[in-house]
Every structure is written in structure tokens, then in C-alpha cells.
């Protein structure tokens, strides 16, 4: 589904990604872990198409399309979803209106009819239950006045509504207490199926107790330096990232 080959990216002339390789197949969950500043969030931003980043080398194939050639919204319409580390507030724009606009744009791209208001509302009710999001929040302005936990749940709610092929969860666990973490992870797990894939970007292992990854990658200094099964996350938590750094250098 997603094939990243030798990806290089920089911001303001400073190289962040330095030859990153990654292969994600349908039905898989990949965790990307790494110390602060390793380039985890850069990877998410680059895949979503944030303009500040300059691609200096490599290629990204997304379901047979050259991802790097697509506009941000085209990537979204192709089924790439980013759950933001810091969800943006849009005052005065209701969550519902926002999502309906997004959903219909995506449907139009696929050559489908706009969703009927009744069906849409039914869908909102159903999907908001997934992350135990208060129905009232759905009619409030996008992320405005939401607590940190509500913002993150809202991200997963949007993911449920838009049904992406590939979801990238960027530090979705940061700022969540243990209960909220369970709810968010539970929502994500319900959305897992054989046709979609998820990339979980996280600094800590705790989210991976709930969203069990098929692969754990360690990102350090702009590259994947180690890949292993889910147990690798535990090992990292125990031994710290320095262990990887030392290890990687000796390899």
C-alpha cells in the first residue's frame, strides 16, 4: 500500500530525513518509535504534504500513485489520513459542517453522490460512539474549547467518518490520561481491518499495549535503524533509546 524508498527531507536547509525506507501492506499496523528530534513528526508531515518541508530525495508510492506528486487534499482524497499531534482549532466552523464538507469532497473525487443529510447524521451518531465522543461536541466548532483528550478523540472520530486506507497517528497518545488512552485505542482497533493500514508514531510504548503493532520500527537521525516485532517496543521502553543508538553504531 505504502512504499517509501530512500526518502530525504529537510526544513530550512536542515536535513531531517536521511534515507528512510518503509513498506506498509494492507491490514498491517506499524509503530514508529524514536527519540525526540529523530524525524517522526517530519515523516508524518511529509507524507501529508506539508509545504515547509523540502523533499531532497527518494520516492513514495501510495497504492500505485506517486504520493509526492499529489496535492495535500488529493492525498487525503486518495485515502491518506493524518491524526494531528496538535489538532487545529477553527473558530465558528462546526465539526459537523467541517466533516460533511470533507466527506462530500472525498465522495465527489470518487465519483459518488453527496451523502444525504439523514444518512450523514446517522453516521455521525454511530461513529461518535466509537470514541465515546459527546454528541454535543460534534456540533461545536472544530476543536475549539476542546480539552486535549477531546481533541485527540475528535481526530479518531474524523478518521472513523472518513474511512481512510492509510491512517497516520502522530503522537496521538500524548497528553492522554490512561482512560482516554484506552478509549482512543479502542476506537482505532475497531477501525482496523484487512483493507486498511495504520502507522502509529509514538515516543512511548504504552499506546502499543492497546494498539498491537505488527512491526515496530525505530527511527533515529532520520533513518529506520531497527525493525522488530511488538516486543521491541517493550525492550525500548526498558532500555531507552540510547541502547538503540549504541547498538546501531556498532552494527
Amino acid at each position: 500500500m505504502l512504499t517509501i524508498k530512500n526518502l530525504h527531507a529537510s526544513i530550512d536547509g536542515q536535513a531531517i530525513l536521511k534515507g528512510l525506507n518503509l513498506e506498509v501492506k494492507p491490514g498491517e499496523v506499524h509503530a514508529i518509535m524514536g527519540p525526540n528530534g529523530a524525524g517522526k513528526s517530519t515523516l508524518a508531515s511529509v507524507l501529508a504534504g506539508k509545504e515547509e518541508y523540502e523533499i531532497t530525495g527518494g520516492e513514495v508510492d501510495f497504492d500505485g500513485k506517486d504520493l509526492l506528486e499529489l496535492e495535500t487534499e488529493e492525498r487525503a482524497k486518495e485515502g491518506l489520513f493524518l491524526a494531528f499531534q496538535y489538532p487545529v482549532e477553527i473558530p465558528g466552523v462546526s465539526n459537523i459542517n467541517f466533516l460533511r464538507t470533507a466527506l462530500n469532497e472525498i465522495r465527489e473525487y470518487r465519483g459518488e453522490e453527496p451523502i444525504a443529510a439523514k444518512d450523514f447524521m446517522a453516521m455521525v451518531r454511530e461513529k461518535s460512539k466509537l470514541v465515546e465522543l459527546d454528541a454535543k461536541l460534534a456540533s461545536r466548532s472544530v476543536n475549539e474549547g476542546f480539552s486535549g483528550g477531546e481533541k485527540k478523540r475528535n481526530e479518531i472520530f474524523q478518521m472513523a467518518m472518513l474511512e481512510p486506507k492509510l491512517a497516520i497517528l502522530d503522537e496521538t497518545d500524548s497528553g492522554l490520561d490512561i482512560d482516554a488512552l484506552r478509549i482512543v485505542a479502542g476506537g482505532v482497533n475497531k477501525l482496523r481491518n484487512q483493507n486498511n493500514a495504520i502507522i502509529v508514531i509514538t515516543h512511548y510504548q504504552r499506546l502499543l499495549d492497546y494498539i498491537i503493532p505488527d512491526f515496530v520500527h525505530v527511527l533515529a537521525d532520520g533513518k529506520i535503524v531497527k525493525t522488530g516485532p511488538k516486543e521491541l517496543a517493550l525492550e525500548l521502553e526498558e532500555k531507552g533509546y540510547d541502547w538503540i543508538n549504541d547498538n546501531a553504531q556498532t552494527v
Partner: peptide, 16 residues
Amino acid sequence: FYCLQRGISEEKAISL
């Protein structure tokens, strides 16, 4: 950017 990432075009995003 947030709107774009949800598949909403710039034109619509600005209007929203």
C-alpha cells in the same frame, strides 16, 4: 492545511 488534509479544497477551506 488541516482542512486540506481532510480532503477539502483550498477554495472551500477558505470559505469555511
